[in-house]
Amino acid sequence: MTNYYPRETVEFLAVTVTVDGAPVTDNVEFCVTPVGERPELWDAPTVLDNRIGVMVQNQEPGNYRVWARVTDNPEIPVVDCGYYTVA
């Protein structure tokens, strides 16, 4: 995913999360970080029209990476879902 947004935007960014090739929508949390930083604080996904994702809003210009964490048993995979740019 590579999307470009003006810094004034308020927009839903749908994110497809896959584990072992299968899409996952349950037990998913997201973290958005500036590119180069590691995920620390996780939030529940935003849900819109039966899709999960994150809201792009109130961010300084720069590149941001979207991370997903899937709670499963016994694994808890963290997935790099791509990045977007705020201009």
Rank of each mutant, 00 (worst) to 15 (best):
M1A: 06
Y5R: 00
Y5M: 01
P6K: 01
R7F: 02
T9M: 05
E11S: 11
E11K: 13
E11A: 14
E11G: 09
L13M: 12
T16E: 15
T18S: 07
V19F: 14
G21K: 07
A22R: 15
A22Y: 13
P23D: 01
P23W: 00
P23V: 06
V24F: 03
V24N: 00
V24R: 10
T25F: 11
T25G: 05
N27S: 15
F30L: 08
C31S: 15
C31L: 13
C31V: 09
V32S: 04
V32H: 02
V32A: 03
T33K: 01
T33E: 03
T33F: 04
V35H: 04
R38Y: 07
R38M: 06
P39W: 12
E40V: 12
E40P: 01
L48E: 10
G53W: 10
G53M: 04
G53A: 08
V56E: 08
N58Y: 14
Q59W: 04
Q59K: 13
Q59M: 15
E60W: 11
P61M: 08
P61A: 05
Y64F: 13
V66S: 00
V66K: 04
W67V: 03
A68F: 12
R69N: 07
R69F: 08
V70F: 08
T71N: 12
N73M: 11
N73I: 13
P74F: 01
I76D: 13
I76S: 14
V79Q: 05
Y84D: 00
Y84H: 02
T85Q: 04
T85F: 00
A87F: 14
